[in-house]
Design a binder for these strands. Structure first.
Length: 441
RNA sequence: GUGGUCAUAGCUCAAUUGGUAGAGCACUUGCCUGUGGAGCGAGCGGUUGAGGGUUCAACUCCCUCUGACCACCCCA
């Protein structure tokens, strides 16, 4: 008995808000990650990566107040450095891009899949550790880059088997909203200027879908918005893309979003996008088009993730201007989506074949077979112990391994093996070369 | 960070007004001496999330902590 067994046992639970990935969970994770990678590569994006600890000041300068003050894992390392675990990836992306800003050929199209940590109170669809796909394009001012980046989630959804009616991507434009709030509604401040009237009103507009009409009006009134202005705000929220057309000449944002729809129309993807003027998004660095994807499952209506254009992301590193547009997709909300719509496939094992061991005398022969199969690139599970065959077969069955090979004394004499197809419940006696041929198919 | 619900075997759940825990599934094993899924046995498995209190007696009542879930905040 060791010391632990008499004293209090250590919990087998993973850290709060974080998940263990057992092999079956890992299969699901890899399934999703592989689709993410496949789609990004299909769009000509290149993968990048970076350390998950960064200097604290990076996030202090770039992330929102809420994230820095409440949700950051922050500590001092043994060298006295003030460091933090990444709560998001965009600041690091800006750091790396700026580091080679003079030499990277543009446009820059990068994607990354990695985990981030936030000190959250966990609940459904939200933990403390989450994985995220980020894809970004830098150096393209034209709205074609927006269309390209925002096509990624649609392609991913298609690959995952999602249909048009299961999700929608709401899009709006911050420049347009700012123009409208300033010129038409006549509010003070800026949409990204924390504490100003316009900033606060923008936040209220963003949460409008979750509020009752009375609450919405009450909140606007408490920001000193007069009835005439409220009417203007409401007609903006209710507006459609035709409404925006008339501001094309006065607002670059109006041009951006109407152009976006024109291109999306020609690509046939416009049906996935809904113009929803109230979408603002939390991060202050967004400037142009912003999108937010929603799960349309009536039982699970929720925001899944989003993205947008940011024109001034590298300003903490350099005076040089570099425009960008990005999108991030989290694994936790995506999993909720897939479960809700029953889109998770049954994922088979990647082991192609299991080789049994008949008894101690034939063990070496079994290992020879195992080795030959592996040399041919066949994923081969060796049972390793000469226990009763029925136990070995049962194991293969439980693990979902399709083929089982038995080489007993009779087969060894004849130079053959028994190949059993567990799915079809058929068994054939073949020479090993034939087996390899069959398994390679 | 605020408010609410909850916590019994690996999983899903039982346990009558407080009288110190059971089932199904899973796992191991036998029926089955060269072959899986079914069936029927058997076994393993719990200081009832942790700590404290009330009581002759606590899974049950009270407090604290931890964790899960839900709403808010914020966001992926």
């Amino acid at each position: 008995m060791n010391k632990q067994s008499k004293q209090q046992k250590i919990s087998t639970q993973p850290y709060k808000g974080a998940r263990d990935f057992y092999p079956e969970d890992m299969r699901v994770r890899n399934y999703i990650f592989n689709i993410w990678k496949k789609v990004c590569k299909r769009y000509g994006f290149e993968e990048w990566d970076f350390p998950f600890i960064e200097p604290f000041e990076l996030f202090e300068a770039k992330s929102g107040d809420e994230i820095v003050n409440k949700q950051l894992y922050r500590f001092t390392d043994k060298g006295g450095r003030d460091v933090a675990i990444r709560p998001e990836k965009t600041p690091s992306l800006a750091r790396m891009i700026t580091g080679k800003i003079k030499t990277l050929p543009r446009p820059i199209k990068w994607f990354n899949i990695a985990n981030c940590w936030r000190f959250e109170k966990p609940q459904k669809g939200r933990g403390r550790e989450f994985f995220q796909l980020d894809c970004d394009i830098f150096g393209v001012k034209d709205v074609t880059a927006d269309v390209e980046v925002f096509s990624i989630p649609i392609e991913v959804m298609k690959e995952l088997g999602a249909k048009e009616n299961m999700f929608e991507i709401r899009i709006s434009n911050r420049r347009l909203a700012e123009y409208y709030l300033r010129e038409v509604v006549e509010l003070n401040g800026g949409i990204s200027e924390q504490g100003t009237q316009m900033y606060k009103v923008a936040r209220i507009i963003d949460s409008q879908p979750k509020l009752t009409e009375r609450e919405f009006l009450k909140q606007l009134e408490s920001e000193n918005v007069n009835p005439k202005q409220i009417d203007a705000i409401i007609s903006f929220i209710k507006s459609d893309i035709q409404f925006v057309e008339k501001y094309r000449d006065d607002s670059y944002g109006a041009k951006e979003i109407t152009d976006f729809f024109r291109i999306a129309e020609s690509l046939g993807s416009a049906k996935y996008f809904k113009f929803r003027p109230e979408i603002m998004r939390g991060f202050d660095y967004y400037t142009g088009n912003v999108i937010e994807q929603f799960d349309l499952d009536p039982a699970n209506k929720r925001s899944m993730y989003g993205g947008g254009r940011y024109d001034d992301l590298v300003n903490i590193f350099t005076d040089e201007k570099l425009t960008g547009v990005g999108y991030a997709m989290g694994d936790v909300t995506l999993m909720e989506f897939l479960k809700g719509w029953n889109l998770l496939p049954v994922l088979p094992t990647e082991t192609d074949v299991m080789v049994t061991i008949f008894d101690e005398n034939t063990r070496n022969k079994s290992f020879e077979i195992v080795q030959k199969l592996r040399e041919k690139g066949i994923n081969t599970f060796a049972y390793l112990e000469p226990v009763k065959l029925d136990k070995q077969f049962k194991y293969a069955d439980r693990k979902g391994i399709r083929y089982v090979i038995v080489a007993g004394l009779d087969e060894i004499k004849k130079g053959t093996v028994q190949l059993k197809d567990m799915q079809r419940k058929q068994q054939q006696e073949l020479v090993l070369e034939k087996v390899i041929e069959k398994l390679k198919q």
